[in-house]
Structures are given as C-alpha cells and as structure tokens.
Design a protein around this nucleic acid. Sequence first.
DNA 1: TTACTAACCTATTCAACGT
DNA 2: ACGTTGAATAGGTTAGTAA
Length: 351
Amino acid sequence: MDLSCPFGLLGKEVRRRRIVLNQKQKDTLRAWFQKNPNPDLATRGLLAKELGISESQIMTWFQKHRKIQKQVEFEYCFEDSQAQGRDKPKVKEPGRSRTQFTKAQVDTLIAAFKINRFPGIVTREKLAQETGIPESRIHIWFQNRRARHPDTQQGTQATAQLPQNSQCPALKTTGQPPPSTTLPSSLSVTPAFSPPDPQSSPLDLSRGGQKQLSRTIVPQPSQVVQGRGDRPSSSVFNGHLSPVIAPALEAFHPPAPLWLPIQERCQDPSEDSGLAVQPLDGSTQAPAVNQLARKDFAFLQHWDEWFQLMLAEWVPDREYWSPGNPELQHPWQMQPLQPADLPHQADEILQ
DNA sequence: TTACTAACCTATTCAACGT
DNA sequence: ACGTTGAATAGGTTAGTAA
C-alpha cells in the first residue's frame, strides 16, 4: 500500500457525490424500512446491490429515516398521550454484530489515519478495496478513531473548540434572546471577567474541556472541522466571540481583521441568534463600551492578547488548508493583531 | 432563489469481546 | 469486572440538486 502520498489527494479530499434516489429506489427502501428499520450489514449489502448504490448510502438513508420515524412517533405520542398501545412490548432486537478486524486491516487503517484523519470517499473506498472492509465500516472506524485518538500534534488545535458562533445550536433551538452583558445560565463557559487561564479558558483545548462545553458554548465540530474538512470550500471560520466580550472588543477595534469573517457570517440578520457579533453602528458602540467597567476591559485586553496568541500559533491542518491555494484561503490566516496595538487603542477609547 | 436532503461531522452511549 | 473498540444514535452543518 502506497502511503507516501495519501492517494494524491491532499487538500482535494471530497465528499461522495450526492446522489438523488429515484422513485423506485425510494419505494424499495421504504418497503425494507417497514419490514426492518435496522438492517444488518449483510442486508444492507444486498439492498445496495439491488439498488445499485453503495452500502454506506443505504446506511445513511436508514439512519436518517430512523430519526424521522422517531420524531414522528414522538409527536404522535405527544398528541395522543392517552392512547393505549404505546407500551407495546418491545421485541428484543438481535445483538449487534461486531466486525472483527484483523491486525493487518487495523494496521492499514492506522497507517492511513496517521496520514489523514479525515479521508474522503475516494480514500475510504481505496482502503476498503485494500482491506476488504466495507467502506461504511471504514467510515465508522475513522469516526471512532478520531474520537478516541485526538490529534496530539495539531489535532487539538485543528479541532480547537472556539467560542460558539451565531449558530450555536443550543441557543438557536431554545430561542434564547440575545444576551446583553450576561450569559445564559446554561452556558458552561469560563466566567467572562476572569483573566484568561490556560487551564480553564473558554478555549480550553483539552478533551475534557470539549466535553464539558459540548453543545453549549463550543461550535459544532462540523463548523470547525467540516469547514476546513474534506470539502475545499471557502467556508469561513464562523466561530464567534463570547457574547459578552465580542461586541465590546469590536467596539474597541472594529477594523481588526479578527472580527471580519464573523461579521460577514452574520450579515444576514435571520442567521443571527443574538450571540453573534452584532454589527455596531456609531449609536450602539458607545453604550456597548460604557456598559463595561474598566476592570472588565482589563480582562478583555488580556483575553484578546491571549486569543491572538492562540491564533498565531495555530497551524491549520495541511490537508485542508494551503496558504497558496486561494480556494482554501482560511480566515485564520488573518494577521493577528499586534498586542502592542491594544493598549494604544484602549487608551484612545478610555480617554 | 429556495426547499429538500444526502453526506458528513462530533459527542455520547451501547454492547461484543478479550483479558 | 473491566478495558477496548465496533456500532448506533442524537443533533448538528454543508452543499448539491430539483422545483
């Protein structure tokens, strides 16, 4: 197996071409779903053959439809909570099958993983060919591997959990009003007005930190990883700053490149859940600043400097980002603010 | 342009299996 | 019993395609 160049696809890993199922395929899948919403690997393989699509596509379809069905069932139960029959005895499902990988197969996968933690469909299929493992199992294997083996070299940085952006699901779904100077209690974020502390900062990159902040203040992984992931999209870093400090920081130095992509992302007000950086006009800037005590600014200054340092040190995954490729131009390339700029700007504002 | 949805992600949990 | 790890699920985003 030639791993010298990961399939010549560095920076070009693409997702599987999206297919559109035809009516016959959909009907067949629905019929099978009625019979058994949890087909095993072999069944999915047969179905794949029959329908002329891949087994992992079958798997994806079934996953989605199990979700949909659960939603429907939930709604049904909610509406008809008095109805009987909801407690129909559950048929004991057969135990999960567990693929037993050989050592050689695992070695191959590990080797590939070392080169590329996010293999695209082409890579996965090549691996499938070489190992004889179904592509969908390889996909799962990589998911598990990523979860259990964080990238010690750059992974923690590459998957840096940054402050949540405007699309924070937790807040989006709960429809939290835009916080002004306080955080929703549900947000497990480092108290805003404490000095940046590498051990407990909002950018705590440790795995524990990620877990703790899961679905609260951290961006969804797909926002960080997918954005630079196997799609060479121009999608920008859309992480946002703490709802507390972002507006204030922006008020302090609006032209700072750090904030630009964030604003760009939030130009559509409909996308803005309130946590995003608000575009500040002249009339809103002053109150934003005035609401902050000077001691708060001291924190902001520290936080900003610290954040800039983090940015400056961060080296994006080479696979997904290439400085020479404008297609993959990454917003993190932005020149970090010079820390020396901060006191200067702060003085201007505080005078 | 917009709605739909396949493809993909992480985080978490379940469970098979070897020790 | 416990650790490892394959599999499944929940809850998201992204982006291609059809209407």
